[in-house]
Write a protein that binds this DNA or RNA. Sequence first.
DNA 1: ACATTAAGTGATT
DNA 2: AATCACTTAATGT
Length: 213
Amino acid sequence: MLHTHQIRLKSLLKEKGFEESLIEEILTCGRLKKAKKGAYLLSSGMKVAYLPFILSGRLRAYRGDDEGHEITLFYTGRGETCSFAINSIINQTPSGIGSIVEQSAEIWMIPGTKVDAWIVKYPNFRKFIFQSTNDKVDDLLSTFDSISFMKMGDRLYKYLLDLKHASGSSTITKSHQQIAIELNTSRVVISRLMKHLSATRQIRQQRNRVELL
DNA sequence: ACATTAAGTGATT
DNA sequence: AATCACTTAATGT
């Protein structure tokens, strides 16, 4: 007896090219977790017990300090897993990053204890894991570059573009304050830059809403 | 109508 | 690019 989310999960796993028997294993030993927008899934220093496979929604990974500063690192969406979770699981080390639900998500939680064996047993799982790691390291480097070399205005624009790609929508519903937190700058700075983007017709904005043009 | 939260702005560092 | 101090605009109760 399969639930609708299990059917969707199954077809997504097939799409990913996973072996039939692996799909069965994933289905039997995982469990569904529904997480609402704004929920914290993981914070820095926590042990990771489950490998999250995202069925729907989107997560935002960030690095933070103890004074409430943070910086957005990358997003994780449908059909993806967070490669930092993989590292924490395999190396048995605590997570160095935090993860928050950006768009209400359904996540298939796979016990971390299975990961080692599956990497050995299933070539396609191994590929998936390495591919995920590679993807997220690329994202991370791109974020690193922007912090190191780009001016705030360009960083903001890149941030908006990244969000557009991650969400598949050119409308972003966030306040200037929230964006400022994610980029680790001040609200005033974001407001000024937004005004400029608006004046040069690169965006259109309303309260709590930015549309990329 | 009033309070609260979001966004805009000039001046200063 | 950040901070302060303040204004104006939008929204909730």
